[in-house]
């Protein structure tokens, strides 16, 4: 199968993730969309690695996964604590940082 198709898939996944981040309000869904974007980029990295016969892309994908795991830990903790104080998981309710 033509490896370029994986790139199309990665672009599609990234677009879905990005539009999800921009459109949805629920913090958990937003979070999942961010993960989707990260994984889309992972897929692209691995594909490029394959296309160029070079392992750099795969190594970078591992880095991304580590970072994503750390981000999930911190992000979920923030979402839980916001939910506890404000009784809402909507990101539009946390809008105190404006003039």
């Amino acid at each position: 199968m033509n490896p370029v198709n994986y790139l199309y898939l990665a672009a599609l996944l990234f677009t879905i993730g990005a539009s999800g981040v921009l459109i949805r309000r629920n913090a958990i869904v937003l979070f999942m969309c961010v993960e989707l974007m990260l994984n889309a980029s992972n897929l692209a990295l691995v594909t490029f690695s394959r296309l160029h016969d070079n392992l750099d892309g795969q190594i970078l994908a591992f880095f991304t996964m580590v970072v994503a795991a750390a981000e999930v830990v911190v992000g979920l903790a923030i979402i839980v604590s916001i939910f506890r104080t404000r009784h809402s998981a909507s990101v539009d309710d946390s809008n105190l940082m404006k003039l």
């Binding site: 981040v21 459109i23 539009d92 946390s94 940082m97 404006k98």
Partner: peptide, 14 residues
């Protein structure tokens, strides 16, 4: 512009 909505900040970053 500083409306406090995360999504709009995300949009401007995009």
């Amino acid at each position: 512009v500083q409306n406090g909505y995360v999504r709009s900040y995300a949009l401007s970053m995009f």
